[in-house]
Each structure stands twice: as structure tokens, then as C-alpha cells.
């Protein structure tokens, strides 16, 4: 059995997350993936913004930084560029990463800076009590979409790849062994990597959509029943894929990493004497 005590700040537990929340599942998956890398704890920085997922850094024994809403990637970019030997991991909710932090997200993708971003995508603003986010499904009710969400959703993986990320994957909080694999691969990837983790928030999202999600268990079952691996999805029509969660590794490619390129420029002036 995996020994989490090496990585957890036991005195900070229990965590704030509700029963039925996927954040604890994803945190453990991240810790198992980090363990597999063999990295020193001192060399790892976990950075977050604001929201439920963003409380994660407080629970894990690394260099941890809880920033302002939406700004995790801005801080993380400064850390990585100033000290490239650090392994920088950003944990962020869907509102944090894609609404208020959307600009930083696409530009971090474009730079291909060696940071791994895990999007805890539960399709709701949980911390503030359940307002619709950029990934709330069409028609779902929330405290600010009492008549049903009228806005279409973002596809995190498509945005990331379109903006220049060189590793993108999507998993769920139900399919845990696969998620471990995606996160580990993202961590080992040189360049900007994104793992979109489909999760559920029963407390603020499920409870106001009882017909669709009768219980927190049903929300996990929803992930189980609707996830389709990318290989299988390729054979299905757009109509057949409607409302489905396509999982797997979407892109994994090589492109010059930003901080390495920067170091080469610096070295060309210092004559290799440093």
C-alpha cells in the first residue's frame, strides 16, 4: 500500500473538501505520480490560485504557494523561469484556470514552459456556493443559472492544444489508474502539460440538479458511464459523442521548452564560464 504520510502535512488534515468531492482522489493520484518521478521534495513547487482545489498546496509537503484567484500560472511562470531546476506543478479549478485565469492559461501553453497544470474540472464554482463556470454543462442549473446554464462549455484539452501546450490528457476522478498514468506522463513531459480531470461537486452542483445527479455516487457513476477512451471515440460520430467524456492522451509532442531556450541565450553571452 502506498505510504502517503511521506508527502502529506498530517497536521493540516482533515481537508476542507466535502463528501463526494473528487479533489482528494486527484490529490492522491498526484502524490503517487510524483513518487514515481523520484524527484526530491525540496525541488518541487505546487502553486494554486483560489477555490476548493486551490487549497491542495496546504496539505502537501513541498514548496507550496497559494496565490490570488486565477493567477497561479503567472506566479508559477516567474518561479520556473527564475529557478528552472524546480519542478513546478499548478493545481487549479475550472473557474480559476479558465475564466479569471484564462489569459494566463493560454499564454503558458504558448510559451511551452515546463510546468504541469492539473485542472480540477468539476464544472462549478464550489467555494462560493455553486455558480456556473466555463465548463458547466449546457442546461445545468446553478445558483447563477437557476433557469439552466445558457452558455456553451470550454473544451480544456482543445484550448490547451490550440494554444500550444505540448502534452494534453483528460481523465476522470473515477478512472484512477489511468489518471495516475496521465499525471505521471505530464510530470515527465518537457514542456507545458495539461491534465483535465473531470470531477463532480455534489454539494453545490449535484444537489440543484437532482434529476440528472440523484446522489454523489451517481455523479461518479456518470463519469464511469459516459467516459469513452479516445481510441474508441475516433470511430464514433459527433452525435454519438454528445455529452460524453473523451479520455486519454490527446497530444504528446516535442517543441523547444522556454526556459531551456532562455538558458542557451544566457550561456551564449557568459561564454560557458558560469
Amino acid at each position: 500500500m502506498f505510504d502517503y504520510s511521506k508527502y502529506l502535512r498530517a497536521s493540516k488534515l482533515p481537508h476542507i473538501w466535502c463528501p463526494g468531492c473528487g479533489h482528494g482522489i486527484v490529490m492522491k493520484s498526484i502524490l503517487r505520480a510524483i513518487d514515481k518521478t523520484g524527484w526530491e521534495k525540496d525541488d518541487i513547487v505546487v502553486v494554486s490560485g483560489i477555490g476548493c482545489a486551490s487549497r491542495l498546496p496546504g496539505y502537501v509537503d513541498f514548496n507550496t504557494l497559494h496565490t490570488a484567484h486565477g493567477r497561479a500560472l503567472a506566479f508559477a511562470t516567474g518561479i520556473k523561469l527564475a529557478k528552472p531546476k524546480m519542478h513546478v506543478i499548478v493545481v487549479s479549478g475550472d473557474g480559476d484556470a479558465l475564466a479569471i485565469g484564462g489569459n494566463h492559461f493560454i499564454h503558458a501553453c504558448r510559451r511551452n514552459i515546463d510546468i504541469t497544470t492539473i485542472v480540477f474540472n468539476n464544472g462549478i464554482y464550489g467555494m462560493t456556493g455553486g455558480q456556473y463556470s466555463p465548463t458547466t454543462p449546457d442546461g445545468d442549473r446553478s445558483s447563477t443559472s437557476p433557469l439552466g446554464n445558457m452558455e456553451p462549455e470550454f473544451d480544456v484539452v482543445k484550448i490547451a492544444e490550440g494554444a500550444g501546450a505540448t502534452f494534453t490528457a483528460r481523465g476522470t476522478s473515477y478512472h484512477v489508474p489511468q489518471l495516475d498514468n496521465y499525471i505521471h506522463k505530464a510530470l515527465m513531459h518537457k514542456g507545458f502539460s495539461v491534465v483535465d480531470v473531470i470531477e463532480a461537486c455534489y454539494t453545490t452542483h449535484g444537489r440543484v440538479n437532482k434529476k440528472k445527479y440523484p446522489s454523489n455516487i451517481d455523479m461518479l457513476k456518470f463519469q464511469k458511464d459516459n467516459a469513452i477512451p479516445i481510441e474508441k471515440a475516433k470511430k464514433l460520430s459527433e452525435k454519438e459523442l454528445e455529452g460524453k467524456i473523451i479520455t486519454g492522451i490527446f497530444c504528446e509532442k516535442e517543441r523547444t521548452e522556454f526556459t531551456e531556450k532562455y538558458q542557451k541565450i544566457i550561456d551564449s553571452f557568459s561564454g560557458g564560464e558560469k
Binding site: T67, F75, A76, L81
Partner: peptide
């Protein structure tokens, strides 16, 4: 680094300062 806006600029230097 030229960041994507002034919010990111200040965020980046706070991050770098922490190192």
C-alpha cells in the same frame, strides 16, 4: 519576461522573488 498583462507581470515577479 514580457507577460500577457500587468497582473501577470506582478505575479511573475512575486513568484521569482520567492526563489
Amino acid at each position: 519576461i514580457q507577460m500577457e498583462d500587468e497582473i501577470a507581470s506582478l505575479g511573475s515577479i512575486i513568484g521569482a522573488a520567492l526563489t
